[in-house]
Computed example of a mutant assay.
Amino acid sequence: MFRDGKARLCLRQSDVGVGSISLRKVHMNIPVQLTVNGESHQLDLDPRASVLDTLRDRLNVMSVKKGCDHGQCGACTVLIDGKRVLSCLSLSASYDGSEVVTAEGLGTPEHLHPMQQAFLEHDGFQCGYCTPGQICSAVGMLDELAQGMPSHVTPDVRQEPQFNDAEIRERMSGNLCRCGAYVNIVSAIREVGQTAQTQAVTPLPVGEPVGVKR
């Protein structure tokens, strides 16, 4: 910083264009391997590329939504190696070799995942924009609950958390629904959780229903 308050940029002679000053663009893409909904992809990516942008822009996986792009709405939630992740805040390079499951990979139109079926039966959506993220998050949170992970509302973290509406609401609080379908979303998750609290997502080839670990 100089006395006149203006920062000055020192350029190498090789970076200066003829007739004008320009910075040379340096491309440093890196290889990243991702298995998305059972299908392996070898990608050449900018190290700054998010999982969200990679899924939508490179792999045409359109269920993953860009809502806020700041990790505040949950519309971009996917499952990576079985854990729910906000894909807008996650760098693809950090998940090299990982398995990604989106709403498309949970089931098929002929064989819906139990959570997808429950959302339909309980009318757990209105406009549908947040629904893929809601469903992925719901599947992930039931797995967390089955593993005994406590939440903010768990009375005693030394004990197994109880499956109840308070736990559902707390664990799903990161997924916003502008249409306000929360009551029906909780009902859908409650139904699935009561019948299969130990379900966990297993990525399978595209076109096949998701497997269930018991």
Rank of each mutant, 00 (worst) to 15 (best):
E104L: 13
E104S: 07
E104M: 11
G105L: 13
G105T: 14
L106G: 03
L106D: 04
L106E: 02
L106H: 03
L106R: 06
G107H: 06
G107M: 04
G107E: 03
T108Y: 03
T108P: 10
T108H: 04
T108K: 10
P109K: 09
P109T: 10
P109E: 14
P109A: 13
P109N: 09
P109D: 13
E110P: 04
E110K: 15
E110V: 10
E110D: 15
E110M: 14
H111P: 03
H111S: 15
H111W: 13
H111N: 15
L112A: 05
L112T: 05
L112W: 02
H113A: 11
H113F: 12
H113V: 13
H113M: 13
P114E: 09
P114V: 08
M115T: 10
Q116W: 11
Q116K: 12
Q117G: 07
Q117N: 14
Q117M: 14
Q117F: 05
A118N: 06
A118S: 14
A118P: 08
A118Q: 08
A118I: 07
A118T: 08
A118M: 07
A118D: 04
A118G: 10
F119S: 06
F119H: 07
F119M: 10
F119D: 05
L120K: 11
L120G: 00
L120Y: 11
L120N: 09
E121F: 02
H122V: 01
H122R: 15
H122W: 05
D123C: 11
D123H: 15
D123G: 14
G124A: 15
G124K: 04
G124S: 06
F125Y: 15
F125G: 00
F125W: 12
F125N: 01
F125E: 00
Q126I: 10
Q126K: 07
Q126A: 12
C127G: 10
C127H: 07
G128V: 10
G128I: 11
Y129N: 07
Y129T: 09
Y129M: 13
C130G: 09
C130V: 12
C130H: 08
C130M: 05
T131K: 01
T131E: 01
T131F: 00
T131M: 03
T131C: 03
P132F: 01
P132Y: 00
G133V: 05
Q134Y: 10
Q134R: 12
Q134V: 02
Q134N: 05
I135K: 00
I135R: 03
I135T: 02
I135S: 00
I135A: 02
C136F: 08
C136V: 04
C136M: 07
S137K: 01
S137A: 15
S137W: 00
S137C: 13
S137E: 00
A138G: 06
A138W: 02
A138M: 04
V139C: 15
V139W: 03
V139M: 01
G140P: 02
G140R: 01
G140C: 02
